[in-house]
Design a protein around this nucleic acid. Structure first.
Lengths: 114, 114
DNA sequence: TATATTTGCTTGCAATACTTAGCAAACCGA
DNA sequence: TCGGTTTGCTAAGTATTGCAAGCAAATATA
């Protein structure tokens, strides 16, 4: 993915967290998080991705793949293994653009009722 | 692992390869390989590890673990999640209500652009 | 309104991955 | 012996990760 900065931002905003909240929980500086979300970071380290994956509740592998690191066989497996069962729930059915929209909508949902 | 430099050297020598042979196949400079094997490198990038894993015939995961990167736990998490929704896999932990809303919104997105 | 806090961001800076250039010793065939 | 090649290595330089410090605007609090 080229513009994964926006993706990280969407993840954070979907959780309604500030840069400094993530900084505390992940032990990653808010300065660096800002750079990450604005596309100024090329490839954050696996350790950083791991911390963020836990906070945002997404898989470590997914983030590794997002930023362009080689990923130990997973995507291919999931695509080839499960047949047509539960196609509506399949991961690959959602494009990156759609995913961003869903994250933004999730943020809207969570802010709506307060 | 602390002294994985020697480990990489052992891998290379077990294959009877020179630094320059590995350089050609992996597209990693012999200078850097030398530093790597003499313990002057802290954490080679995942991409470099991936290339070396293919040449030396060891698993990518193993090398990732050797140099101290977090390694995806493929035991419980993924299996317990696979039965659930894949949207959660992509956008993070969500409630059932939120999932329903997101699925409806996804349908809206897809019908919209046509 | 005025002051304090929050929030995102930018600017230097240190550490480190990785490269190009090149050195020195070992190894070759004539 | 001698010129060339191979081999591992070091030195110097570039690029990027990630941080501490701090700024400016928004927001909260008095």
């Amino acid at each position: 993915m080229q513009n994964y900065g926006e993706y990280f931002r969407a993840l954070r905003e979907a959780k309604n967290m500030t840069l400094r909240e993530v900084e505390k929980q992940a032990d990653v500086s808010n300065a660096y998080l800002s750079q990450l979300e604005s596309g100024k970071v090329k490839q954050p380290s696996p350790l950083t991705l791991h911390k963020l994956s836990e906070i945002y509740g997404v898989s470590y592998d997914l983030l590794m793949e997002k930023v362009g690191y080689p990923v130990p066989e997973r995507k291919e497996k999931m695509k080839s293994e499960s047949g047509k069962t539960s196609i509506a729930y399949r991961v690959g059915d959602i494009s990156d653009d759609e995913e961003l929209e869903l994250l933004n909508y999730l943020k809207f949902i969570r802010n709506r009722k307060k």
